[in-house]
């Protein structure tokens, strides 16, 4: 199925910080063929189809990330899916798991399957947990060099040219979403250069998003994870959230993560 999406040019004036963020995102991320005219998705998956909905391709190289958008995800934990498929897709997309020396507790994981059990009732469930792309991201606040940053569109990632490997962001992240590269890596994927001595984490597959695709885990989730623009009330993620609700993990910390869950 091919979806046509409007390709209007956003000529918004951006705020200073947003334009700075754009600048750095432009500098540091490889943009593929941007402004794709159409988007192919697996059959049955509803995506950005609304006429007015802002779409992935609005964010061309010229634009960088736009602050009008806030990318988010909604995970339906009540669906019977093998979340490990998402983990595998992520590992493949970013070329993870290529450590040769690191011990298991030193290896990078962007996304993991967490089993939660209520000891009282015996009820248990599992859910995938990745960087929650917090709006008030502690990792961004504590980073001394600004390597840990939030793009205007809400995606939190590490500029690996700026990261000094102090690991303060790992100390600060309440979701244990980050990993430190403990060894020299070879065999990297083109889109996710990873380097010894730097910290890394789920970047919502920013390379794919900027390229008009959805994140790898979303694609592998058989519809159990929905990706879209939280700022756009017409996007399917916003509509579902409005209708059925969704919870954030540790919402009590008031970080306003961009990843929502149903059934937790």
């Amino acid at each position: 199925m091919t979806i046509n999406i409007d390709n209007k040019n956003n000529d918004e004036t951006t705020t200073d910080s947003a334009s700075k963020e754009m600048e750095s995102s432009r500098r540091n991320f490889i943009f593929g063929s941007v402004a794709a005219a159409g988007l192919t998705v697996a059959p049955g998956i509803m995506l950005y189809q609304t006429a007015n909905a802002r779409s992935l391709s609005d964010f061309s190289l010229k634009e960088g990330a736009s602050s009008k958008v806030r990318w988010g995800m909604l995970v339906d934990t009540t669906k019977e899916v093998d979340w490990n498929k998402c983990v595998d897709a992520c590992n493949k997309e970013h070329g993870l798991g290529n450590e040769t020396n690191s011990r298991d507790e030193q290896k990078t994981q962007y996304i993991r399957v967490v089993e939660v059990k209520n000891k009282g009732t015996g009820y248990s469930m599992s859910l995938p947990v990745m960087c929650q792309h917090c709006e008030s991201a502690p990792c961004v606040d504590v980073c001394p060099t600004g390597a840990s940053m939030k793009r205007a569109d809400g995606i939190v990632l590490v500029d690996r040219h700026r990261c000094i490997g102090c690991r303060y962001c790992m100390m600060a992240c309440p979701y244990k979403a980050r990993s430190f590269v403990h060894e020299v890596l070879t065999d990297q994927t083109e889109n996710t250069p990873r380097g010894k001595g730097c910290v890394e984490s789920c970047n919502m597959c920013v390379n794919r998003i900027d390229n008009g695709q959805e994140p790898a885990c979303v694609e592998a989730s058989d519809g159990a994870i929905i990706f879209g623009d939280l700022n756009d009330s017409e996007s399917s993620i916003s509509k579902i959230l409005a209708k059925h609700g969704g919870k954030q993990i540790r919402a009590d910390l008031k970080l306003n993560p961009g990843v929502f869950y149903q059934g937790i």
Binding site: V140, D141, V142, C143, P144, T145, G146, R162, C163, I164, G165, C166, R167, Y168, F180, V181, K196, G197, C198, V199
Partner: peptide, 21 residues
């Protein structure tokens, strides 16, 4: 540090929100 060779980054690129800075 993971990248002590980037001392110069730490000394020039400041994030003033960070207590580390």
């Amino acid at each position: 540090l993971g990248r002590p060779d980037r001392l110069i980054v730490a000394m020039t690129k400041f994030n003033f929100v960070s207590i580390f800075t």
